[in-house]
Amino acid sequence: MAAKVNTGTTGHSDVNNAKVFSPLDTGTFVPQLVWLALTFGLLYVLLKRFALPRVGEVIEERRERIQRDLDKAEKLKVETEQALAHYEQALAEARAKANAIANDVRAKLAAEVDKERAAVEAEIARKLADAEARIAQSKSKAMASVADIAADTAGAVVSRLLGKEVTKDEVQRALVQRAAE
């Protein structure tokens, strides 16, 4: 079945010409050229039309997918950072608000305490004044009675010494006179 190809000029396919170095044998050039053109052409067309676009598409699709995923990750990262910033802002605001409320309450309480204290102090002062007034009254009343008691006592002492009754007016008079000297 397989016949040796000889130099084309002889036309006898089964003559083995040992003198010809087959890789350079011009007689085999034509069939080799024809089949090289056919097979290489076929390979080129099939690769170009069919095989290479398929591989290229897959690679391109993967590249796009990875790029898309990277973009998405980047977006999510930015969003996360934003959320974090918002959270921190909210936290700061809440803290400030809490501080304000605490200060407010503190001030209000202080004001109330001051008012209460002032009221209590005023009450105490009033009571003190009352007491002082009462004391002063009692004192003056007592001082007023002292003259009477002194007169009575003096009358009694004089009556005992003299053995005779003296009127209250006489004692009074003498006392007033004596006090005037």
Partner: peptide, 13 residues
């Protein structure tokens, strides 16, 4: 023209 299918053609194909 000699366009025989040879062993070279076979391996190309």
């Amino acid at each position: 023209w000699d366009v025989s299918f040879t062993n070279a053609s076979l391996y190309m194909l």
